[in-house]
Design a binder for these strands. Structure first.
Lengths: 207, 207, 207, 207
DNA sequence: GTCTAACCGAGACGGTACGTCCTGTCTTAGT
DNA sequence: ACTAAGACAGGACGTACCGTCTCGGTTAGAC
């Protein structure tokens, strides 16, 4: 059969015993579980390997440090809903709900600021953190861009990323720093302010 | 001599050798220096004591853990300018400048998210972190309240804390997570959106 | 009392918490026990620390490597009998008995060749091994010197160390390499050959 | 061609790909080189395979442990000269020279005591070590037996093995333990003492 | 000409020990 | 009751080898 012949014509490029893919899964699962239990600063490489039933070397062969491992584990969490609900307020409500639910049902809320701290330190892992955050942040930006395309937000408006930062920022500020709640009422207020502000700014630019 | 007599008239309440107050200063200075150099996760209690030229026990006698020590060190950084520049945009520009300058000239930007991570973990230190952040965040809230008092922002407007979170949040989001710059132009845009949004929301409440 | 005053006038020269002398004893005892059980190549630093009920750092603080630790442990074994039995044959019988008994009742026989192997490698530990062997070998040389002093061996005889090497050598050769027994009869024969050989060589030098 | 025909007439008894005989040579050579460089305790199976350009499994398929491998490597060293020089002193001088030269030009001197240590531990490898030493020790015993046959040593003399142990023993003692030199003068003295001692003991038995 | 069996290099695997580092506590002598 | 100094138990770090295994691929005799 064609596929068989094709597969045979692309032989294994790396030699030697292939890596055990079950180990990957077990390690990532163990990491995620331990992150949820102990938070990032309580994550121990030895504990990860032990819980995964894997030798330490097998762990280090895959991820050289805690940051890489953590990002691999977080990547298993399903992305934020990228679905188009048809309206900006609907999209933003969905995004808020997803974030709030994740942080309410797990202790993963401590992981993101921990990674942010590492990112700021400008270590070798900074780039990986950057890339991860960029990927996961995409749904927020996409929601804004859809709103502009729909005409919900003025076309002459500010940078979509800045608008996303304004909306996501208030949530992060409350969740991570001040501890304020981001309930439905507060979120509606925020969205209202930002949408009306953008429209007003578009019709009378400048201060 | 007067001072001697005064000292003698207020005798030490606790017996034994009094604590060396120079040690406090040396420890806090060492902590701040090491935080700036290595970030929070690179801060070592041993290194702090060594750089301060102080025994480890002396350090632990004053601060029981890394969080307390870090907060004590951060408390040496002058507060954000609480001065009233006379206008909201002036106040906010001053606040932004102070934060951006601090994070540009030192590597202290990694400390706040690190503390946030500890805070979320709900350790015994959470309360201290909460209190510290609340104190340091006050100037932002005060600026909003002054603007409302001045009439720059509508009196029927949203919770001043929420407005402050919106403004500070976009900055934190960019500095800590997405890495976007918070330059003068972006800041002006943000302030413009928020102010106009608040006014519009006040005149036509609801969505 | 004089001694008390004297002690007080020589204050502790090293500062800080003094080393726990019980740990020294526990470590050396554990080492000796493990050497007897597992031999030199089976000796594990972790096992020593664990059996002594001591942290690994405490072990490494005292002895930087396995060789040093082993020598410290062997030094706890009482020296060979240095007593003067009054005759060369008596002295040599006593020395033989002591060595044979030690190697029959323990498995320490593997330790000396292991150290010899390290000695030959000319590592940093070679000097320590040299010094240990020299000390422990002294009774053999002393026995020869006493015999010369007594007139049992000719005064014009060969180097006492060479004679000792001849006698001890045949024992080591059998115990460590060829596996031959060094029983009373063989030992008497050896001593007889060496003594008579020395006397004959003294009376008619050269080949 | 003859050889081909001969090979064909003795077909392989086992099926499958035959072992690569070059690998044997490369492994043994690599082992010997590494033993000379690092000594027995510094010998690493991985290093042997790597230097031989061979997979680890190929090494383990041939020799199950370090002792077997080491013995195989040592077996490549030419045996001690078994030639009959016509006199005992000549034979012994030749034997001494061969041993001293080997240990001066290589660091193989550490290997024999290391094997001795393993032998004493009575592991599964003890028998192999015993056999190797016995084979290699044969020339010493043969030299003594030739001397007895020649009449150089008394026919009623002690066990030839014991005499050989006496002579070889003093050398091993010095080389491995006390570090004394075995130069020409010392060796002549030793041989003189032993020969004269044997003759004297034969003419007047007992102490 | 397959088929089967044992080999081959490469390198991942579970496991164990290494020697170092740091934490938070404790024990000295001395202030 | 404090101080500096530094030892202590405990525990995690990241690395190095061990001996085994699992791949794809090779090389022979047997069928």
């Amino acid at each position: 059969m064609m596929l068989g012949a094709m597969a045979r014509s692309y032989p294994q490029l790396v030699r030697g015993r292939p890596r055990d893919e079950e180990a990957d899964v077990a390690l990532v699962d163990a990491t995620l579980a331990l992150l949820a239990e102990q938070g990032y600063s309580g994550l121990r490489m030895e504990a990860v390997a032990a819980r995964a039933g894997v030798a330490k070397a097998t762990l280090y062969r895959r991820w050289p440090d805690k940051v890489s491992l953590t990002i691999a584990a977080l990547s298993r969490i399903p992305e934020l809903p990228a679905v188009d609900t048809g309206s900006l307020s609907g999209d933003l409500a969905a995004l808020r709900d997803a974030v709030v639910r994740l942080f309410k049902t797990t202790r993963l809320a401590s992981v993101l600021p921990a990674l942010a701290a590492e990112r700021v330190r400008r270590t070798s892992a900074s780039a990986k953190i950057d890339a991860f955050i960029r990927t996961r942040y995409q749904p927020w930006i996409a929601a804004i861009e859809r709103a502009i395309a729909r005409g919900e937000l003025p076309r002459t408006s500010a940078d979509p990323v800045l608008i996303a930062d304004l909306l996501a920022g208030v949530m992060m500020q409350r969740v991570f720093f001040t501890g304020g709640r981001v309930d439905d009422k507060a979120w509606k207020t925020v969205v209202d302010i930002v949408v009306k502000g953008l429209r007003a700014a578009a019709s009378s630019p400048g201060g």
